[in-house]
Write a protein that binds this DNA or RNA. Structure first.
Lengths: 174, 174
DNA sequence: GTAAAGTATATGATATATCATATATATTCG
DNA sequence: CGAATATATATGATATATCATATACTTTAC
């Protein structure tokens, strides 16, 4: 059963949370997506960020950021001018309208998080984050494989799976 | 900082896992997405599922399932005939090719999961799932709000947050 | 200073997510 | 039976994710 597989549980939880959070934002009368709000937030904090920097901070990719920024500009939540030192870029600025929506939506966001985490202790949250970080690390700098470590179950704990890069067990196909 | 907010940690971990898992599938020479593989799997298990049932099992929605099935049919991993009892539906069947790819990809999938979870104990996985399930429940059957429960922190544990539906604190806007 | 390399952004193509709705068919109920 | 209701699927519209690549500009190396 899929629900026994951790990654489906993760997927399921984050999907439900996003659905829940977006629905509450919609219901409160805001016409902004969570992702747009998130990017707007980063622009407010560091208006001189490059798209790559925003992408890294938000765990998105540059192409998505480009399109989200485009929408934010359309909605007049962000304004652009010439960048003073780099003509490839634009100098971004959150508009008054943008600042207003950031401020107005914040209580809903905070409330969403609080409701979603109800009954979960600080320690449990820390534990969750620790484990999620470990999964992240395990999936980084690795190409999977090493089908079975020769009997050293938990040794890679601090190493983030930077083990050798043996060939995959799966049959090759086009 | 975003990394301190649990939901970004969840998002980050699952995104990285998906990226990692898909890259390994690609690298092994398969031309199928994880989502397609997942749906194909469900069809194999229960070929008579409706799209809604598949959606529920995979935590996707019916429209996505419809489009994924369309692609699976295009790729000839699934074949359809008339449904014997319900003319709104089609009788699906995983083709030989479909069965082959399911079988061939499985080792890669299992390996992906194993690598991603390296250094994480059974107990920790269970704990993770328990907490994710709690988040899921908290976000279900609830419209957020109840900005602060009047001092009964963990009482809603078994209830899935079905508390009264007070007005949101955020200012109303179009 | 110029060529090469690197960086920033935009965009096409495709896959998925989501919502709303259209269409067809089934089921229920008077 | 026939109308109302429910269900199954498809699809349009939009947002996001991802990869690849094009374009413009900057920096580096010579």
């Amino acid at each position: 059963m899929l629900s026994r597989i951790l990654f489906y549980s993760i997927d399921k939880a984050i999907k439900r949370y996003r659905q829940f959070a977006q629905a509450n934002i919609d219901r409160a009368g805001f016409s902004i997506t969570i992702d747009q709000w998130l990017v707007l937030n980063v622009i407010q904090e560091k208006p001189d960020s490059t798209q790559m920097e925003i992408a890294e901070r938000t765990f998105k990719d540059q192409a998505s950021i480009a399109r989200i920024i485009h929408l934010l500009i359309q909605q007049k939540l962000v304004a652009v001018e010439n960048h003073p030192t780099d003509r490839r870029r634009s100098q971004m600025r959150v508009t008054a309208e943008g600042n207003r929506i950031l401020e107005d939506v914040m209580p809903t966001i905070l409330n969403n998080r609080a409701v979603a985490l109800r009954g979960i202790s600080e320690e449990e949250i820390a534990q969750l984050q620790y484990l999620l970080e470990k999964i992240f690390t395990n999936c980084s700098n690795s190409k999977s494989h090493e089908t079975q470590l020769p009997n050293q179950d938990d040794l890679s704990l601090q190493m983030g799976a930077t083990a050798p890069d043996a060939a995959n067990t799966a049959t090759e196909r086009a």
